[in-house]
Each structure stands twice: as structure tokens, then as C-alpha cells.
Design a protein around this nucleic acid. Structure first.
Lengths: 230, 230
DNA sequence: ATTTGATCATTACGGTGTATCGCAACAGTA
DNA sequence: TACTGTTGCGATACACCGTAATGATCAAAT
């Protein structure tokens, strides 16, 4: 029986799974931001029809959820490190650097509850580090407070970063002289404190600004963990 | 000269300005969330062709910017109140309630630098209240830290709120028993601290949770304003 | 009176998320 | 081995989107 007798194997569809889909989506987002992620483009990158994806996700939002959880794998520290404070600090910094690697994460951070397995693991190590240091409610409040801080700070940092990129000017420079609108507003005299701040403020790099605020918040948490009633 | 001789006055186009546009957009967003805001629908609500809007804004994002600034008018307190701490506290709470009135604001908060006149005014009163309490950089750090906290906390609160609304279950209930996925994850034993937290945690209402965290952060700021070097 | 320039409406383009539907390959049965 | 139900896939289709390009219309300027 020659080759010619045997029929060609029927063209099997490209195998697919969530991992591949999410990887493609993340690649697109890394290259062109969240807005570059469309189900059609994700599908195209996988040599697949768009509708195929709906076997694995049922909505675009779910794809975003998967993407966020995937990045949480990068946030999860490899080894469990000691101090509660160190754990919270590391989590904050790892979240920040993951976001700088995947800027689109800033658009999603805090937007929806994160319940994927990786996000749960991140929360687990955080809670484990704080376990028993105070009554449970205080501990939860602590985790949420720190989380609120770094979420907000990261979002703001990325927002400023993008603005700088778009205008080609650092925030301070731009406010100070080059932004005609802001200059005009400050010239009205209606914002003296703001004008002074912009005039006299020194340019602080984003990371130390992030770190400083973080340590303040951690100080506050430390005080409450010591005296849980307050 | 009879009526019939005189030509009908030519149909003047509907008068328009940014205020009207923004108001229409906010109304749409209040009703159906940010995703219900399309330039076509905004225009329709004003009895106007969609392209007409491009005389007043040049992109949809700019419309969002205007919306955000408009809400900042609600955030700006009417009278200047004393204490720096009170000023920060009030700003946080007013931002929170404005967001609860306009939930879509949560999607925009921290997403882009806010430079509209109302946002500037809000920043002005904040800075004015802190002026001279420490060196300028410390003051700026304080404002940013508190801002990062309440931005993050508000976003998270709204995210949870939406999840509750979608599932019909409070966050705790849903995690505890009714969410099959979370239950399954916790049953694996890989998340003992998380399981304990969910099992033993009491349901705290969102506002007190927000307030508690805020006061912690304000405590931290107070400590730094006292000793600016730390 | 004629031209010009600005304003507005229409049309059109290339994209989006996703519902629907018909087909083709497989599993199970007779 | 023939048949049949089920499942998963691809193509098509729909309603909508932001906005570029174009065409019409009218007030002001020459």
C-alpha cells in the first residue's frame, strides 16, 4: 500500500488551552497595551478562529482575569521570608515591578476581585506571615490597607509615566513651564499653595517615593499590630 | 407681507457646549456605567450628530477627563475646615462618596493625571492645609500617600460591591460556602491561613473598614509631619 | 453680489465582542 | 459495518463602536 493509497490524515485543529491563550494575550498587551488585546488578534496569533476562544473563556473580561492571575505568579515570592514587615514590603515591591514589566496591569489592578490560584497563593503567604500577630480583623485590615496603598500608588505612578511619555516632559517640568494650560492656571493666583509646591518641589524618583510612602504605611501597621485595640 | 412670504428661519443647530456634553455623558455613565458611554449615545441624548462632539473634544478619553473633573466639583469642600488631618480626612471621604454616587469614577480614579480646574482646586485646598507643617517634600509625600490609599481602597470597595451585586452574595458568604471554586481551593489545604481568615473573619461594613485604614495612614502621616526627617 | 471660511451633517471605514448556525469528525450502538 | 447522536469547530452575521473624510449650508467679508 503506497503513500498514495493512504488518505492524508484529516487536518486536526491547532491544539489549544488557556495557558496558550493567556500567553498570547499577555504578549499582545506587553507590546501594545491593553487596548491592543482583542479576541480576534489573540486568536490570530494562535492561528485559530476567534470563536474558538469561547470554549475556554466566556467573555473578554474573563481573559483579563486570567491575565492578571498569570502575572501574580511573578509576584509570588519563591522563598518564604521571615518578618511580616518584610513580607508585606516584598509583596508591594514585587507587585510594582511586575506592573512596570506589564504596564497594562495598572489598568486592571484593583478593578476586580482577584481570585485566581496565583492571587490566592499571594494572599496566603501574606496572611501566613501576619498570622497571630493580632486579632484576625486587625490583621485583615492591615493587609487591605497596605494593599490599597500600593495599588493606588502603582496606578498613579504608571499614569504619570504615560503622561511623561506622551508629552516628553517630566511631570515637574511640564507643570512648571512647558504646560501652557497649567502655567496659565497657576498664573491666575487661585492656586498659591499648588504654585509654590510646583515651583519649589524637587524631582523625586518614583521608586523612592513609592518606598517612602510604603514604609510610612508599614509603620502605621506596626503600631496597630502592637496594640490591636487602637 | 404675509407669513407665507417670509421664509421660515433656517433651522439653527442645537446649541452645545462642553458643560452640556459632559452632563449628558455623566448621566449615561450614572445609569449604565462607563461602558454605556459612547460618543454616539452622548450625541443622541443631545439631539446632535456624533461628529458634532469633535468640535469640543478631540477624543473619547478627553471626555472622560472632563467627566472626572466635573465630579471633582462635588469633592471640593464648600468651606475651608481647620486641621490638616480633618482636611485630608474630608477629602478622602468626599472622594469616596462621590464615587459611590458615580460608580464609574472608580474605573477612572488614578488612571490618568487629573489636571482639570476642579481637581486643581481640590489639590490646592489640600496643600494649603498642610503648608508649612513640614518641609515641602514631606508634605507632598504625605498628600500622595494618603491619595494612594484612598484611591486604592475606593477602587477595591467598588470592585467588591460589583462582585456582590453580580453574585448576590456578600464577599464573605460567597467565599465561605457558596462559591464552589473558592471552597474547592480552600479544601485543597494549600491555603490554611486564607481558610482560617475566611472562616473566622467577621463581616465588616465597607465604610468603617475604609475609615479605619484611613486613620492608620493619617496616624503615619502625623508622625512624619512631626519629625520630617524620618 | 460674490467669494470665502467656518460649522455642521452625512457617509464611510475598519475595527470590536459575541450570537447563531451548519458542518464535519468522533463515540456509541445495533 | 452501518447508523446516529453529540460534540467541537469554522464561517457568517449582527449590532455597535471611534473617528476620518467628505459634502452641504450658512454667516461674514470682500
Amino acid at each position: 500500500m503506497t503513500v498514495w493509497d493512504r488518505p492524508e490524515p484529516t487536518a486536526r485543529p491547532v491544539p489549544l488551552d488557556r495557558e496558550r491563550i493567556v500567553a498570547a494575550a499577555i504578549a499582545l498587551a506587553d507590546e501594545g497595551g491593553l487596548e491592543a488585546v482583542s479576541l480576534r488578534k489573540v486568536a490570530a496569533r494562535l492561528d485559530v478562529g476567534p470563536m474558538r476562544l469561547y470554549g475556554y473563556i466566556s467573555t473578554k473580561e474573563e481573559l483579563f482575569d486570567l491575565m492578571v492571575d498569570e502575572v501574580h505568579a511573578e509576584i509570588l515570592p519563591e522563598e518564604r521570608s521571615g518578618d511580616w514587615r518584610e513580607v508585606l514590603r516584598i509583596r508591594a515591591h514585587r507587585t510594582r515591578s511586575a506592573t512596570l514589566r506589564h504596564e497594562w496591569l495598572a489598568d486592571l489592578l484593583g478593578g476586580r476581585p482577584t481570585l485566581g490560584p496565583n492571587a490566592l497563593a499571594v494572599n496566603e503567604t501574606t496572611l501566613a506571615a501576619l498570622d497571630g500577630l493580632a486579632d484576625l480583623d486587625t490583621v485583615l485590615r492591615a493587609v487591605e490597607t497596605v494593599g490599597a496603598y500600593f495599588t493606588g500608588a502603582i496606578r498613579r505612578e504608571v499614569a504619570d509615566l504615560r503622561a511623561e511619555r506622551a508629552t516628553g516632559l517630566s511631570k515637574l517640568d511640564w507643570q512648571r513651564a512647558s504646560g501652557p494650560y497649567v502655567s496659565r492656571m497657576l498664573a491666575t493666583g487661585r492656586f498659591p499653595a499648588l504654585a509654590k509646591a510646583i515651583h519649589d518641589g524637587t524631582e523625586v524618583d518614583a521608586e523612592t517615593s513609592f518606598t517612602t510612602g510604603l514604609e510610612w504605611v508599614l509603620d502605621a501597621v506596626a503600631a496597630k499590630l502592637a496594640r490591636p485595640s487602637a
